Simulated scan of single mutants.
Amino acid sequence: MNEHETTELAIANVVANIDGVSDRVIDGLDAEFGTATAVANASASELQRVDGIGPVLGRKIASRTSSATRNPEVHVLDDIYTKPQCSRQH
Rank of each mutant, 00 (worst) to 15 (best):
K83A: 14
D79S: 10
V39E: 01
K83C: 09
R88N: 09
T82G: 09
L47S: 04
R70S: 04
I61G: 01
V21T: 09
R59Q: 15
G34Y: 06
R49Y: 12
H4N: 08
T35S: 13
Q85Y: 13
S43P: 05
E46G: 06
P55V: 10
R24E: 15
G20C: 12
L57Y: 11
S67A: 14
D30M: 07
L29S: 06
A38D: 07
N41V: 00
S22G: 00
N41Q: 10
S22T: 15
D23Y: 13
P84I: 09
F33T: 02
V56F: 00
S66R: 10
L47A: 03
A12I: 08
V39D: 01
A31M: 06
E8D: 11
I11V: 15
A68I: 12
G20Y: 14
P84T: 15
Y81L: 08
I11D: 04
T35M: 02
N2C: 02
A36Q: 03
E8K: 02
A68E: 06
I61Q: 07
I53V: 14
V21S: 04
D27W: 11
D79C: 04
T6W: 01
D27R: 07
S87H: 07
V74H: 05
K60A: 14
I61T: 12
G58S: 07
A38E: 13
I80G: 02
V50I: 08
V25L: 07
V14T: 11
P72G: 03
N13T: 11
A31Y: 06
A31N: 03
P84K: 13
A31F: 08
H4S: 10
A10N: 10
